[in-house]
Each structure stands twice: as structure tokens, then as C-alpha cells.
């Protein structure tokens, strides 16, 4: 019998603590599958961030390091510079990456650090109770915007992929989604491209993955996926924004 889909070696046997239907679990699996397929399990170091994925070090069967809130790209910079033969990635939420960690991500990208960033955009701070994030859509209800995000007061969402794609030293920047199986598979391809860019020493790579937070969005898991497709994707278009040629990508 051939396994078509199952638990990759780069994931541990631990049961996820994530809420039912939260796509963090799918994105973990995709990262682990890509690392397995590239044969990089023994030489990869992951950097966990703060947010619901703070415990991701329990789930990745890899060398893992925890970073302070938002600082994962700085920690990954240090690891990669000291151990340049390792594959180094961060796994960060949108509160972590686009809010408290905006300085670290911008400068790691501007310096062209040869690391891979997995950026999970679920349009809110999941762990702390669904507060507004820099990625919250105009009009979106959150626990801190109970009447909807008012762009006059709270400004507009940050499109991080578009921002980083303008930087000279970034090598691979893509935004993908997890709202159905076809897009989950496209997300895996983008993650593969990002890790390959790092393998080839091309510089900074990031995949922004549109994800869900059914608990704080107060939706059933299937409704949350539909909300990604009908609302998030309008504001955050899916695209490969930047791809440096030179590899067999």
C-alpha cells in the first residue's frame, strides 16, 4: 500500500491544541511535508513565534527555537548566520509579524537574509481573543472593533507581501490560501518554492497563507473557509509577487 496522505515524519505524534477547524494545523502539515520531500529534516531549524502557534515547537519534529513576540526573523537571522548550512524558517501569525514584529520582518527582508518565513494571516489576534490586527479587513468585527474596523480611525490593512515584494533583496514572495483542497495544494507548492529559494542561496523568501480563526470569527469551520474566499481574498489577492529566476522552480 502506498500512503497518499498521512502524517509526515517532520511532525511529532502530539495532538494539536488548536481549535476545531483552525487551519494552523494544515499549514504545519504542509511545511513538514515540504521539509520531508526535500530531505531536510535533519538540517532544518524552525523558529516559533508568539500567538496560537507559540507551541509549534511541540509539533514540528525538528530542531526548534522559540522567539519573543515578533522577533522570529531576528532570531532566524542569527541562527542562519552562525549555521549557514542549515535551512532556517520562521512560523508567524499576522499579529506577530505585521504588528509587534513589523521592524524585524522589514529589516530581515531588506537585508535579504537567506531564511524562509511562513506567515499565517487570519486577520486577527487569535490567541488573545480575536482583537484587531494590522490585517483586519475594513468593517470587520473583532473584539476591539465591535462596530467593525473604521478606516478613518483605525486605518487600512497592511498588505505585507506587496510591501516586501518591492524590496531589492527579497527572492520569493507569494500569497496563497487554505480555503479549499486545490488552494491547500497550491500553498504547498509555494512553500516548496520558498524553501528551494533558500537552498539556492537566493535570499529572503516568504509565503503569506490566508487562514481561519473560526473561534474568534464566531463561525463554523466550513463558514470560516467561505469567509476567506468571499472576503479576505478580495483584499489580499493570491499571487506569486516575486520569484527570482535561476532555479528549477
Amino acid at each position: 500500500m502506498k500512503v497518499i496522505s498521512g502524517k509526515p515524519e517532520s511532525l511529532t505524534d502530539k495532538k494539536y491544541h488548536y481549535c476545531p477547524g483552525c487551519m494552523h494545523g494544515v499549514i504545519h502539515r504542509l511545511v513538514a511535508e515540504v521539509i520531508d520531500e526535500l530531505g531536510l529534516r535533519e538540517e532544518t531549524v524552525g523558529v516559533a513565534s508568539v500567538g496560537c502557534s507559540v507551541l509549534s515547537h511541540n509539533y514540528f519534529n525538528l530542531d526548534m527555537q522559540e522567539a519573543a513576540h515578533g522577533r522570529a526573523p531576528a532570531v532566524a537571522t542569527g541562527i542562519k548566520r552562525v549555521l549557514p548550512d542549515r535551512t532556517v524558517f520562521t512560523y508567524q501569525g499576522d499579529g506577530d509579524l505585521a504588528s509587534i514584529g513589523s521592524a524585524e520582518i522589514l529589516h530581515a527582508a531588506a537585508r535579504g537574509e537567506n531564511i524562509t518565513v511562513i506567515f499565517v494571516n487570519n486577520s486577527c489576534y487569535g490567541m488573545t481573543g480575536g482583537q484587531m490586527a494590522p490585517t483586519t479587513l475594513p468593517g470587520q468585527l473583532t473584539s476591539t472593533t465591535p462596530l467593525g474596523r473604521d478606516v478613518k480611525k483605525e486605518g487600512y490593512p497592511l498588505r505585507m507581501s506587496e510591501v516586501l515584494a518591492t524590496m531589492d533583496a527579497t527572492a520569493y514572495i507569494a500569497r496563497t490560501s487554505t480555503h479549499n483542497a486545490k488552494h491547500v495544494m497550491k500553498t504547498k507548492k509555494a512553500i516548496l518554492n520558498a524553501f528551494k529559494a533558500q537552498q539556492q542561496g537566493q535570499g529572503f523568501s516568504m509565503v503569506e497563507v490566508l487562514s481561519t480563526c473560526p473561534t474568534n470569527w464566531k463561525m463554523k469551520p466550513v463558514e470560516a473557509l467561505q469567509w476567506v474566499e468571499n472576503n479576505m481574498m478580495k483584499y489580499f489577492p493570491l499571487q506569486e509577487f516575486k520569484k527570482v529566476s535561476g532555479g528549477d522552480q
Binding site: M1, K2, V3, I4, S5, G6, K7, L11, K15, Y16, Y18, P20, G21, C22, M23, H24, G25, V26, R29, N180, A181, V184, M185, P221
Partner: peptide, 17 residues
């Protein structure tokens, strides 16, 4: 295996002869 692809908890294994 689309069920396994969408499972957030890696709870499904699909094997084929």
C-alpha cells in the same frame, strides 16, 4: 485524499494499493 488534505488535525491517512 482531499479529506486528508483538508484535515487540520492530520487525523486521516489515505493508502492506495
Amino acid at each position: 485524499a482531499l479529506c486528508a488534505v483538508m484535515c487540520p488535525d492530520v487525523a486521516i491517512t489515505v493508502e492506495k494499493e
